[in-house]
Simulated scan of single mutants.
Amino acid sequence: MKRGITFFALLVVLQCGAQKDVTTSEQTWLGYIQQVRLTEKWGAIADVHFRTVNNWVQGNNLWLLRAGATYFFNDRTQATAGYAHFHYFAGESHPQDARPEHRLYQQILWMNNGPKLRLQNRIRTEERWRQHMGSRGEALPGYNFNWRFRAQWQLLYPLSKRLYAPGTLALMVADEAMLNFGKEVVYNTFDQNRIIAGVQWQTGKASFIQAGYMHIFQQQAAGNKYRQSHVARIFYTHNLDLRRRSETK
């Protein structure tokens, strides 16, 4: 099902690319992700992100904080539920005030690791509450609400005979398709598609940096407006295992 949704989203992207009302931006996304394994079955995850507006380093687009509790079915399959707060700085569509957004999210992530290739799949649902904004870009009481469905896959291929040992590099490609649902979604059931290519540098046994390029094609709420973003994406991930030795045997 995930592959079908991604394929459908890519077809929409190709069709939308023919439209003339497309704005383009160049952004930088920075992220820090911390995952903690507390017991054999339970853990926690938290991440913080910052994004620029345009010309790679110009302006502040948003910052976000996200946290959740994780249940480990096994070492390759996990489910997470949590909360995220987004702070969108005043910008083009809301020039007077910043716009907050509150999200609940639920996801399942599973990995299929071969001798070299590592494939990661993630399915996520989000419940999004976004502040009402007036016609002049000012914040108003109340929130818009919609659901969003996200399907992502990621593939890693090592560039060293030492595979994923500390200090090695791996090629990384990924794709994520997103669909909107809800009574307030009228023209943009297709939300966006993200294609990512880059490298993963294994900085330690339980930490790595992903750096690369991401292309985003997104349909705006009006339905006839689209945005494409060229993104420099740098994420640092650290995994901490606090299980007692007896639990890991």
Results as ranks from 00 to 15, higher is better:
residue 11 L to A: 13
residue 67 A to I: 05
residue 213 Y to S: 08
residue 105 Y to F: 11
residue 224 N to R: 06
residue 197 A to M: 12
residue 75 D to L: 14
residue 190 F to E: 00
residue 66 R to V: 04
residue 158 P to I: 04
residue 49 H to I: 03
residue 211 A to R: 08
residue 193 N to R: 02
residue 168 T to V: 04
residue 132 H to W: 04
residue 229 S to Y: 05
residue 126 E to K: 00
residue 22 V to C: 02
residue 90 A to R: 03
residue 91 G to P: 03
residue 74 N to L: 02
residue 245 R to K: 11
residue 169 L to D: 02
residue 90 A to G: 01
residue 189 T to E: 11
residue 102 H to A: 07
residue 50 F to V: 12
residue 161 K to T: 11
residue 89 F to H: 01
residue 107 Q to F: 15
residue 232 A to H: 11
residue 25 S to Q: 12
residue 116 K to M: 12
residue 247 E to F: 14
residue 166 P to Q: 03
residue 28 T to P: 07
residue 70 T to E: 03
residue 157 Y to C: 10
residue 134 G to A: 12
residue 15 Q to W: 11
residue 73 F to P: 09
residue 162 R to G: 02
residue 94 H to G: 04
residue 154 Q to E: 13
residue 72 F to S: 12
residue 148 R to H: 08
residue 89 F to T: 02
residue 208 F to R: 07
residue 233 R to M: 14
residue 173 V to D: 09
residue 89 F to G: 01
residue 247 E to Y: 13
residue 92 E to G: 09
residue 106 Q to H: 11
residue 187 Y to K: 07
residue 233 R to A: 09
residue 143 Y to D: 14
residue 175 D to M: 01
residue 174 A to G: 05
residue 38 L to M: 08
residue 37 R to G: 00
residue 28 T to H: 09
residue 13 V to G: 02
residue 176 E to I: 06
residue 214 M to C: 06
residue 99 R to F: 06
residue 126 E to F: 00
residue 164 Y to I: 03
residue 23 T to Y: 01
residue 115 P to L: 15
residue 43 G to M: 02
residue 169 L to V: 08
residue 198 G to C: 12
residue 26 E to T: 13
residue 108 I to G: 05
residue 114 G to V: 08
residue 177 A to S: 07
residue 148 R to A: 04
residue 217 F to M: 11
residue 91 G to V: 04
residue 167 G to K: 02
residue 34 Q to D: 14
residue 92 E to Y: 09
residue 130 R to T: 15
residue 179 L to D: 01
residue 244 R to I: 13
residue 245 R to E: 10
residue 99 R to A: 09
residue 228 Q to C: 07
residue 126 E to M: 03
